[in-house]
Design a binder for these strands. Structure first.
Lengths: 239, 239
DNA sequence: CGCCGGTTTGACATACTTCAAGAGAAGTGG
DNA sequence: CCACTTCTCTTGAAGTATGTCAAACCGGCG
């Protein structure tokens, strides 16, 4: 089995201490959580939860990136979320999960058995408060993604995706260029995320390269040479 | 101005009492909410909140249907949610709203000023608990919608939309037909919801009519004559 | 009656997909 | 170190679903 226990991190040393579902909890509450939690570790590519599976635990992502996706009958798939550190997995109150969760990189989860966690929601207001915030934030970004999926052209989708990567991991210098950035997903995964095919993704990345907007140092590493042009290609208004 | 006060409903007689953000509250808590709430009424077509606007209140939909949408620079728009009775509007903790909210039919809202409501979240656990549930449910359906927008064909999108209407307001009899149902949106609004154009919506509705899946009694009223065929056209697996 | 918004239908354009072949990297084993 | 496989990615050619443009239809309402 892919699941393994890892060295326990103390909650006070936890990298997601200030953002995860536990972030509003005080020291006493933290001690309680500390006693309940368990870790699970997955290797890149491993399935974490499969659609329809019984939902025995809920979890926060501690390290790594997981994808949240769903498939149609005939095998078409759509990624509906990228789970990054501090993101929450699972749906308290539901017996089964309705999505596929897969580790995109090596992933560490901080898990709580579902039943006890549901009790926690009843008895520890700080948990419910933070959970509501997290869910509402996630909802906002899901809705932004819906605009992208429903109305943007392939080029705009790809530009938006790159811009998101830049905003998340990079700094844009005054001349509109960025340092070297990693593409964390394969062309296929990007396509899956954007509602496109991998060929379309490849073609548009190539054309943005030949237009001088992007420069590839290698297939999985690139820099933006003209951030203004990139933003203009997203179709978003200049917010 | 479009906003008007309406006759106050007592919370205990409220039609959304058991589903809205207040549904977990006990009698004492209810009394407090009763004192804080105000009603706002909008006519079909009226804007309720505009993107970027200051968010002075949050609200629950009591009657009617509102749409939640977002636009691109050049005017393309995408609907990202349909707000039905008991749905929640607003984002506690945010000063501004990032979407356009428009009344699709006449709408009544039960409103709370944002600041006092945020205090309520801190002090009244039942509110935060229910809000988390609502947001997580909404998130699940947003994600289902992302699959539709990203991967379904026009025909599948429309079949899915009709199926949703049926599940929400109708009953399917044993022979797979339904009673007369109302189409609450115009072709244009449906297109907007599905990430299509109104022409494409119209064409596919026509073809499903000629295939004997749907029957229109009038442009805004229809019945399903073959629910199995409808479901088969959605592309979803037989869940 | 004649306008008007919502709708249908047609003809055409095109962005994206599909199918297919091949090139680069990266790993594997001799 | 060099075949050999395998996987990812690129590029091309052809097909198609959906968008775009345009005209006509229909029911409602002044």
């Amino acid at each position: 089995m892919n699941v393994a226990l890892t060295t326990r991190i103390k909650c006070r040393d936890c990298p997601i201490r200030h953002r995860a579902v536990c972030s509003r909890c005080d020291d006493d509450e933290m001690a309680l959580l500390e006693a309940m939690k368990t870790y699970r570790v997955y290797r890149a590519g491993d399935p974490i939860l499969w659609r329809g599976e019984k939902l025995t635990f809920v979890a926060s992502v501690v390290h790594g990136v997981a994808t949240l996706g769903k498939s149609l009958e005939d095998g078409r798939t759509q990624m509906v979320g990228l789970l990054l550190p501090s993101d929450f997995i699972g749906r308290p109150g539901r017996r089964h999960i309705d999505f596929d969760v897969v580790a995109a990189t090596d992933v560490t989860l901080c898990c709580f058995d579902r039943k006890p966690f549901e009790l926690l929601i009843e008895t520890m207001p700080h948990i419910a408060q933070r959970l509501a915030e997290i869910a509402l934030d996630e909802l906002d970004s899901a809705r932004d993604w819906m605009v992208l999926l429903g109305r943007k052209t392939a080029r705009e989708k790809i530009a938006s995706f790159i811009e998101m990567l830049v905003r998340r991991q990079g700094i844009v210098s005054l001349d509109g260029s960025t340092p070297d950035l990693a593409l964390p997903l394969t062309r296929d995964e990007i396509a899956n995320y954007l509602g496109l095919t991998l060929e379309t993704v490849s073609r548009h990345l190539s054309s943005m390269k030949s237009e001088g907007i992007l420069r590839f140092t290698d297939r999985r590493h690139f820099e933006v040479s003209d951030f203004d042009a990139l933003h203009a290609a997203t179709g978003d208004d200049t917010a």
